[in-house]
Every structure is written in C-alpha cells, then in structure tokens.
Design a protein around this nucleic acid. Structure first.
Length: 482
RNA sequence: GGCGGCGUAGCCAAGUGGCUAAGGCGACGGUCUGCAAAACCGUUAUUCAGCGGUUCGAAUCCGCUCGCCGCCUCCA
C-alpha cells in the first residue's frame, strides 16, 4: 500500500518515497520557550507525533527531531520585563513544555535540539553563505540576500516584487532589499551573545532550524512540518538558507497543519485570545483533546469552543466505555485466528473488523486522514457493542472480541485515544470518595431503621478489611492494615 | 494590492467525477431497566452557499456572485 502526503512545495498530494528506503527523517518546528503553549500550538505537537508513530507502525524507522528555540527576541523581552536572566525563562518554559506534552500523551522526539547548544553549527552555515556571496554583513548583522537566490518564494508562492509592494513590509534602508532577513543579529547591550568571526551576537530565528535539521537528519531528509503560518517567512527562509549555496538539498516534503480558531479567528498569542493547553487539561482529559484534533483533517482550520469539546467528550466516552466493557469481560486468549474455523456469525464479525481495520489504515495512508479513520473506528465500536449486547456470546465470538481488543490497542499505540490504566486502579482519593458515599447511604438506612441492609454493608466492609464503628452521631471507618 | 484556503443536516465533520452523501453530537420515537446511566433499534441532507457551464453523469471539474478565514509583520 502506498502512502500519499500533501506537499506544500508542490501543492498536491504526492506518493511518499523516502530518501532512504525504510527510513524517515522528520523535523517539526518546536516551541519558542517564553510562555506556556496554547491549545492551538498543541495541534502540530499532537498531530505530527501521531503521524510519526503511524509511520513507525507502518514499519518505517523514523528519526523525529523537534527543536526548542531558547534564544529569541520574545525571551529577551520577557527577561527585561521580569528582570530575570533569559536562560532562567527559557529553562522554566522548556520544563513546562515537556510537562504539558507528557500530559497530552505526546511521545518525546528522538532529538530535542536547543538553539543555544548549536550556535557553532549555525555559524558554520552562515559562513558558508557569506563565502558563497549570498549573504552580507552590515554593522555586525548578517543578512541573507533574497535577490541572489532565484528559488526565493517557491514554497509560499510569493514573488519578490509582490512582497516589496506589500505595505506591511517594514523598510530598513540599510538592507540591500527590504526582504533580506537576518542570519545573525549583533548584540545589543545586556543581550545574550556568542562570538562569531563577524562579531558578537546571536542567531536569527530561521537559521537554527536549517542548521539543526541538517545536523541530525542530513543534507537531504524527508519531512519538515509546522503550522501553516510558518510557510512564510520561516520555512521559505529556511529553504533559501539551506539551498542557497547549492550544497544541500534539504527537506523533500513540507507539511503544514491548519489553525485552531476561536470565535472565528485564529488563536494566537498576539491576539490574546488563547487558552493554554495547561488550562484546558484541567477541564478535559488528554484523550478528549486528542480526539478533538484527530476527528478533523490536519490541514483544515478548526474552531475551538467549549461546546465542541463537550461534544467530543461524550463521543470519547462512547469509545472508552466500549474498551472498558471489553476489559471487563474475561475473554479467552488465543494466539491466532483461523477465520475458517470460526462459526459463521463470529466469522462475519471478524471479517467486519478486518474490513474496517484496513480501511482505517488506508485512510491514514491517504494524507493522514485521521478523521476518516476515526469514523471507521466508531463503526467498529457500534458493531462491537451490538455483539456485546447480545444475550449469549459464544466462545468463538469472545475469541474475536479479544482479537478486536488487541487490535484496538495496536491502533491506540499511535492514536492515544484510550485511557488504559485508569480503569484498573483507583487512586486513594477515589477510594475515599467512594467510602464516603457508602457511609452516607448507610447512615440513611440506619435512620430509617433498615438495619439488615446497614449491617450487611458493615459486615461486607469488615470482610474487605475496613472496620466501621457506629458512634452516636456518626460512623467512623478505619482501614485495617494487614 | 498580491497569494492561498473554506462554505456538506440543528451542530461538529469525512467524501473531490458514477455503488444507499461516512462517522460523532443533539433531537424525537422505541427496546432494556424499580429509577437512572450505558448500550441497541428506528427517524432526522432527493441534496452539498447561490447562479450558470462542461459531461451520458458533478457536492466533486470550469466561470461568475455572495459570505467567511488565513498569509504577505512575531506567530503552530
């Protein structure tokens, strides 16, 4: 089965042919660590991680690199505002970023390079560009000369002339062309800096991704991904820097996710209309957020609202309940299913599962259509529930249900939609809450002099290792240490 | 001004030339149930923003109109 992905560079779906057979080099633009990331930022983190794990499921050996931008204007601004060292800010939010990812059930990338730890790689790349005459220095800054790279604009479909005419391009008279962008910024007093042959300073925003992606994935790698607002200028500039000298081929496929909107507008830090992933995670389980994103195609814009998340949560319960039901049944273990040996109804069910399973995989192989795949998943749930509902479930059917459970888990290894541990163990807090409810009910029984039932509860709890002491006004429960 | 995208049921959302227009939420009716929840069954788009064209055939291709959004500046 071939895999197709939509490549922003060519504006069409293409068959995915890795640079090196069986392997995938995958780079995602990660966060600038100056604040908690918002729910819109979470979209690429979740969606591309699922895509990466799906590729692994498909048998590819994937190297997944997600950078951390820990030197940047925004970090410096915040450091000035709060009178703290930039590094302190970056460290704090790097930690928060990793915590939030974990809560969202996003698997760590194989490499998480920090910009500040790759300055020498960036300097080497800038030097290459200077030597090639495609970049120039200006009072300690280094700029890339867009006019000297004739591929400029090929990713975003923009033309240098149109961009110049655009009223919003800030004109800096010193630059050869207003579109020339900084590879290196000379240090201003009080700013963090590194030594470079052309002076003290820090790297421009775009150069880190070029340097670090090629360092870990090679001159030619497969996938470079990010939000669609990165197409221009960030990714356009990355291509220019990396390909400008003709020495590197850079990324083959460019993937971009659509935005999360809130009240009809793009959710963005600058618009102050954002909700952090942290906040939302307090209200909804990670699985609900994941389902919210995966129920839509990754390239479509989607709207955030509480109503939609509430809806998603109901849908998620449906999925989770089904999985819980499967777990509650003691299903017979079997290594392999031989369809021909199954009874006719069991065989029919088995074939239904297999059909939908392969359709799910096919949907994901078609530009990662997770929305369609999840539709199939719900069809399986419906049919499974129907079977679970029937009066007697034959051993054959139980065998197939167990098979289904395993396959669900297999898919869930990359989708991350099921809560797999919560149902087996309840925490201390849950236990206390339950005991409290039990006592409350029992007290009502006692008030109504329904002693028999009240005694039964007390006896059964004693058997289970809890002793109840009925005092005049209240009951006290104690856990007997064994 | 330049470039790109979107408009499918009450809501969310797949489908991009031809099988009954997926799936979820909601609503209504039913099964089950002491009640509730869950689950199941049935109903809920003769029609895909509007108009025109191409075609034997279009939600799907083309043109126009209307509405919405994004990029062109930091941005996932």
């Amino acid at each position: 089965m071939s895999l197709t992905i939509y490549n922003t560079l060519t504006r069409k779906k293409e068959e995915f042919i890795p640079v090196e057979s069986g392997k995938v080099g995958f780079y995602l633009c990660g966060p600038t660590v100056y604040d908690y990331f918002h729910i819109g930022n979470a979209r690429p983190f979740i969606v591309f991680d699922v895509f990466r794990r799906f590729l692994q499921y498909r048998g590819f050996e994937v190297t997944y690199v997600v950078n951390i931008t820990d030197v940047d204007d925004k970090i410096i601004n915040k450091s000035n505002q709060e009178n703290r060292a930039p590094k302190e800010i970056a460290d704090e939010y790097t930690k928060a970023y990793l915590e939030d990812l974990k809560k969202l059930k996003v698997k760590l990338a194989d490499v998480l390079p920090k910009a500040t730890e790759h300055i020498s790689d960036m300097i080497a790349l800038i030097r290459e560009l200077l030597d090639h005459g495609i970049a120039y220095t200006l009072n300690g800054d280094v700029y890339f000369s867009v006019e000297k790279y004739n591929g400029y604009g090929k990713l975003s479909g923009k033309h240098i002339e149109d961009l110049k005419a655009g009223a919003r391009v800030e004109i800096d008279e010193r630059k050869n062309n207003p579109l020339d962008f900084a590879l290196w910024k000379a240090a201003k007093p009080g700013e963090p800096f590194w030594e470079a042959p052309w002076g003290k300073g820090r790297p421009g925003w775009h150069i880190e991704c070029s340097a670090m992606s090629m360092k870990y994935l090679g001159d030619r790698f497969d996938i470079h991904a990010g939000g669609e607002d990165l197409i221009f200028p960030h990714h356009e500039n990355e291509i220019a820097q990396s390909c400008g000298t003709g020495k590197h081929a850079f990324a083959k496929y460019w993937l971009h996710n659509g935005f999360l909107k809130i009240r009809g507008e793009k959710m963005a830090k600058s618009k102050r209309n954002f909700l952090t992933a942290r906040e939302i995670l307090k209200r909804y389980p990670a699985e609900v957020l994941r389902l919210f994103f995966l129920q839509k195609h990754y390239r479509s814009p989607i709207n955030y609202s509480e109503e939609i998340l509430d809806e998603t949560q109901v849908a998620w319960h449906r999925l989770q309940n089904f999985y819980r039901e499967l777990n509650a049944k003691k299903l017979p273990e079997i290594n392999e299913i031989v369809p021909d040996r199954l009874s006719a109804p069991a065989q029919k069910f088995f074939r239904f599962i297999e059909q939908n399973r392969s359709e799910m995989a096919a949907a994901l192989e078609d530009d990662f259509n997770s929305a369609k795949a999840i539709g199939k998943l719900f069809e399986i749930v419906k049919e499974g529930n129907r079977l679970l509902n029937s009066e007697e479930i034959s051993t054959d059917k139980q065998v197939v249900l167990n098979y289904l459970k395993k396959k669900l888990e297999e898919f869930d290894d990359f989708l991350g939609l099921l809560s797999r541990e919560a149902d087996n163990s309840s925490s201390e807090n849950d236990l206390e809450a339950i005991l409290e409810i039990l006592l409350e009910v029992r007290n009502e029984l006692r008030e109504n002099k329904m002693w028999e039932l009240a005694d039964k509860i007390r006896n059964r709890l004693t058997e289970a290792g809890f002793s109840i002491e009925d005092r005049a006004k209240q009951s006290i429960i104690k856990k007997n240490k064994s």
